[in-house]
Simulated assay, not measured.
Amino acid sequence: MYHQLVDYIHNNKDTLLEKWMESMKDQADERIVKVVSDQVFTRTSREFVDLLNSNLVNDQDFSTKLEDFAAKVIRLGWPLTFVTKGMQAFSKIIFEGMREEGAVPDERLIEFGEVFEKWMTPLYNEVINVYTETWEKTVSLQKIALQELSAPLIPVFEKISVLPLVGTIDTERAKLIMENLLTGTVKHRAEVVLIDITGVPVVDTMVAHHIIQAAEAVRLVGAKCMLVGIRPEIAQTIVNLGINLNQIITTSTLRKGIEAALEYTNRKIVELEG
């Protein structure tokens, strides 16, 4: 019965693929169909069916192929639910196709069901495990990359560096900001550090506390800290919260902050005629 299953899939691969694609396009989220071109969807679907088939014939490279496929479909945006539905749909198409052709007589349905279950269940579990592990690895790498890019201290002039902040600041990110700020201040030998909060949507008590701590830490390593990019609504929030920023020089824009930093280091911006 097992060999009949193998032979049926091998001899009807193109037909199975066509039926599977029709079934999955009906079930797919619009985002999956629209974002991925028909050519890519067809190629990826063929790889998926080949992958299921390679496990059936005990391909020694199956695990490697599965990991590569999982990484690919994650990049394409295929959610795990879509992949698992795909396996269920493929199983149903094979089962119904073999019954229609008479390859599975009624008196051997139980035997065939057991063979089918022994093939699909371990495969189903392995696909889920590899997909989950690959997804977690991808998310972890993306998180590390975002963290590395989320708080860079940029030297813009000699002795002057800028720390542009974008997005929400939580406790974990505040620690990273502090580390990058102190390390960069010493590394670039900065005398003035400008913390630019133009891209920070909300400044509450916790965010202000982290900024004050960062400014104090910069002062302790021998540099001056300025807070720039304070929009009117942010200024109003700071006043309403009663946050004391008296020890920190503040400006409304990064440009004004750089001008103030240049003055502090005995320099200024001049316009040349002609």
Rank of each mutant, 00 (worst) to 15 (best):
R108P: 01
R108Q: 13
R108D: 10
L109T: 12
E111Q: 10
F112T: 06
G113W: 07
E114I: 15
V115N: 06
V115S: 08
F116P: 12
F116S: 12
K118G: 10
K118E: 12
W119C: 07
M120E: 03
M120V: 15
P122H: 01
Y124S: 07
V127Q: 02
N129Y: 08
T134C: 11
T134R: 13
T134D: 00
W135E: 15
W135Y: 14
E136Y: 09
E136P: 02
T138Y: 12
V139L: 14
V139F: 08
S140T: 15
L141I: 11
Q142K: 09
K143P: 00
K143Y: 04
K143L: 10
K143Q: 09
A145E: 07
A145K: 14
L146C: 04
E148D: 06
L149H: 00
S150C: 11
A151F: 00
A151N: 00
P152Q: 01
L153W: 01
I154M: 11
P155G: 04
P155I: 03
P155A: 06
V156Q: 01
F157D: 00
E158R: 09
E158W: 03
K159M: 09
K159L: 13
K159N: 12
I160F: 14
S161G: 07
V162Y: 01
V162W: 02
P164W: 00
V166M: 09
